[in-house]
Design a protein around this nucleic acid. Sequence first.
DNA 1: CGAATCAGTTCCGAATCGGAACCTAATGAG
DNA 2: CTCATTAGGTTCCGATTCGGAACTGATTCG
Lengths: 165, 165
Amino acid sequence: MRWADLGDTGCSIARALSVVGDRWTLLLLRESFLGATRFEELHGNTGAARHIVAARLQHLVEHGVLDRAQYHDRPARFEYHLTRKGAALYPVVVSLLAWGDEWMLDGRDPTLAVVHEPCGARVTPELRCPTCGGRIDPDDTHHLVAGRDRPTPQHESPGPVGRAS
Amino acid sequence: MRWADLGDTGCSIARALSVVGDRWTLLLLRESFLGATRFEELHGNTGAARHIVAARLQHLVEHGVLDRAQYHDRPARFEYHLTRKGAALYPVVVSLLAWGDEWMLDGRDPTLAVVHEPCGARVTPELRCPTCGGRIDPDDTHHLVAGRDRPTPQHESPGPVGRAS
DNA sequence: CGAATCAGTTCCGAATCGGAACCTAATGAG
DNA sequence: CTCATTAGGTTCCGATTCGGAACTGATTCG
C-alpha cells in the first residue's frame, strides 16, 4: 500500500496521518504554532530542504491546514497561517512535546515550554475525559472498532461505531 | 539536514519525531494500542511493506517504545508490546484520532471510538491544564523558547527554559 | 552598479519505498 | 510421507523521494 492511499481509509488516524504524517510536516507545524509564517523562517528553523518545505506547505494548504496569504506585491510574497483546522492540531504537537520532554531529554533541560495564559503557569498539558474530567490513560480505556471485533479487554463490542453515544 | 540528525536537536518535538515521526510508525502504534502484538497483525492491519514493518519495529524496540518478547521456541516467534515509554505516546495517537474524526471524516461515521472505563462514556479526550484545569487552546498559550527570542504575543521571554516553574 | 532578500524551482546523485519472491522451522491435511 | 500453510523475517529490483546545491526573478538597499 502506498502512503498516499491512506487518506481513503476509514480510520481517522490514518486519514490524519495522510495529511500530517510525513517526516517534516509536524516540524513545520511546530514553527507555525511558534509564530513562523514566512518560507524562509519555516525553511531555516526546520532544516528541511527547500523543495521539501515547498511541497509540504503546498500539501498543507491543499488540505486546509494552512492558509497562504499574499502580504506583498511585486515581488509577490506570501505568509502561511494556521487555519482553524490547522490550529486544531495543537494537541498533537503539544503531546509530542510533552512526550519528548519526558522520555527523550535524558536530563537535558527542555528548550520549549508552554505557558497557559489564563492561569499563568508553565504547564505540560494532559489529556482528560470531557465527561468525568479524569485523566486518560491507555489502561483506562478500551476501543470500539467498526468492522473488526477487537474489544481490548472483555467488553462486548457493539456494531458500527456511531458518532453519538 | 537529514532526518536522522533530528534526534540530536535540542527540541523535544524534533526528538520525539525522530522516533515516531516517519510515515508508518504512528500507524503501527495505533495497532499496538488496539492490542496487536504479532508481526503479521502489524503488517496486515497497516498495509505497510513487510521490510518496512520490520525496520520500524526494530527502530521502536531500539528506542524503548516497544518490547520484543519471544512467545514460542523453534521456530522462534516474537510479540511486540508497548513499554511504559510507548504507552506514554497514547495522547499523540488519541489526538490524531480526535483531529481526524473532526476534520477528515466529511460526514462519514468514525470507525474507531475511545471509551473511558472509569465513567463508561465514549469520549473525545481533550487537552487540559493540570494547574487550573482549563482547556488548552493555542490562543490561550504562549511559548518560551530557549536560545531564540520568540515570545508569541507581547510577553517578555526569560532566559533558558528551566524544567520547574 | 553590485549585493542582498525572499520565495520558490530545477538538477543530480543517494537513499528509501513498494511489491513480490524467497527462506527457515514447524504444524496440519490428505 | 508429501504437500500446503503459518509465522517472522530477508532479499531483490525498479520506482519514487530526499538532500544539497545551484539557479531564477522581482525588488530594495548601500
